[in-house]
Amino acid sequence: MTTLAPPLNSPSRSSATVGLVTPGKFAIWLFLATEVMFFTGLIGSYIVFRAGSSPRAYSNLYPPATDLSRTRDTVGIVIEDAGPDPDKVAFELVDAHVVGGAEEAKRLMDTAPHGVVGGLTNDKAADLVHKIEVASGHARIEPLKTQKWPLPYDDLTNPLAINLTAANTFVLICSSVTMALALAAIRQGKRLKSSMYLLATIVIGSLFVGVQVYEYNSLMFVHHYPVGISPTGHFRPDVSLFASCFFTMTGFHGAHVTAGVIALILIFLRSLVLGGYSAQNHAPIEMVGLYWHFVDLVWIILFTIVYLI
């Protein structure tokens, strides 16, 4: 423990504070350790919830957490294409009394190619598929499949867009490297270059937040999802435990990124001032950098366990 104290009267060897303990740096690492524990609370809960979820918690034909004990023998249909005239298909659905009304049928058309109608007998499903084909739509019979948790690429239970988020992951990684380069530049005394890298980090970080806001917006308000994802058609925190975990974890991560962007804007503005930072004095850049890389690191984990697994 005693070795933690900074060496007394040590000649400041170089401009670099790497490898040297300053109170600020110690505190930021300690803060990151507390952040590790905070995200442990969230991610750990997600892991145990997921591992302990009932094997029949999610299904392709019914909303999450539906009691499936009385629906074992039913099948559903998936409307893959509403055809040139969706109204005709919608009419068939209303006519067959499988949806509540014209409005619900209309919403189902919006959900295509994943418009799910569940709770049908085999005969009725075949009949309905036939009628939809006649109405120049396209549908298929879907047997009931239950699962523990929404799997990636499973469009009937999982609404998350992996391609977009994979690209967004790359965006955040890029912001991490510009952050590292900003620190490297100021260590060499290249103030303008450092400022430009900071600006780049801000722009790329904001891009990440922007994409996440776009994703949230489409999940919660824009898109209509099949019933296996949400009974209401929209993917919101209350529709399933999966949604709760997803929004809480990515939401808190997003809040951390936003806080990081604000901190970056502050140090960027200061870096523009003459004498703001120099090769000898750039601790804030290093500290915000550590925070920023940590947030990047958390995202790498979140992207893997929430989107891909």
């Binding site: 900074p6 300053t22 109170p23 600020g24 901190a263 601790a283 804030p284 500290m287």
Partner: peptide
Amino acid sequence: MTSQVETSSSAPVGHGQ
């Protein structure tokens, strides 16, 4: 948080030393 770290670390480090 960050701004606090910033201001205090720009002060001379190690008052106690």
